[in-house]
Design a protein around this nucleic acid. Sequence first.
DNA 1: CTAACTGTATTATAACGCATAATACAGTTA
DNA 2: TAACTGTATTATGCGTTATAATACAGTTAG
Lengths: 126, 126
Amino acid sequence: MFQIDPMARTPIYEQLTAQIERLVLLGVLQPGDALPSVRNLSCELAVNPNTVQKAFNELYQRGVLAAVPGRGCFVAPDAREHLQTVGREKLDGFRELAHELLLAGISKKDLIDAIDQADKKEGEAE
Amino acid sequence: MFQIDPMARTPIYEQLTAQIERLVLLGVLQPGDALPSVRNLSCELAVNPNTVQKAFNELYQRGVLAAVPGRGCFVAPDAREHLQTVGREKLDGFRELAHELLLAGISKKDLIDAIDQADKKEGEAE
DNA sequence: CTAACTGTATTATAACGCATAATACAGTTA
DNA sequence: TAACTGTATTATGCGTTATAATACAGTTAG
């Protein structure tokens, strides 16, 4: 269900948070759903339990996950709303990147084409 | 001419490379123009000379700068072309980010609006 | 030629983030 | 009770970033 690349330049715990957020947005993980336990997931990914917990901790603070000590870790009821808020905050970075690419000579049309491709891809099952 | 934030999460040498690339794209630095010497710039920015050289080294490998030992460091003749190539390579990341934002519920129109804003900003003197 | 500049290279050190390892404690549940 | 759950702690190793102190070679103005 989860995949990790230990050799990537992005930290493992960030790869994990990104994947979980993605699965929630895709609806694969729905509010109330239980996640693998810290120990199980760490074993499955061949990763240290602390690393998994660090990822989960990030998602608690973002309101995506909710933990119940002794029972487990679950998708928060309002996870989607929180993730949409996070998405809004990323719009600034998107705008800056667009500006940078325009400055580098990339045409406005090419950027819009890129959005179209991403949009088409989003509609598919992937 | 250059500004550095030592407290930022992005490394100093990356801040430097980004600024120099930007100045070249804006035409402030033109092919053949000399850059401040490693020692002068490191002194001006209150930064270690090695850090400045690391930034310059990056730009050598990207074909943006050309060094002449004993004389100094200059903007490469084909700096813009190299930077445009770099820009093309960043299009993939742009597309991925767009896909991510669409998944988070950001509308296609909002993304295009962001591009329009970036485009308008690019036309200005800044 | 000398002095002062230029880029370049080397070694050592310190700080920080990432990840691991080994435990330990408390709550839940079959 | 036993086996699970999340959580917390301390220690260690590693790579990147940045600094510091040098040293060497090429260029140039005096």
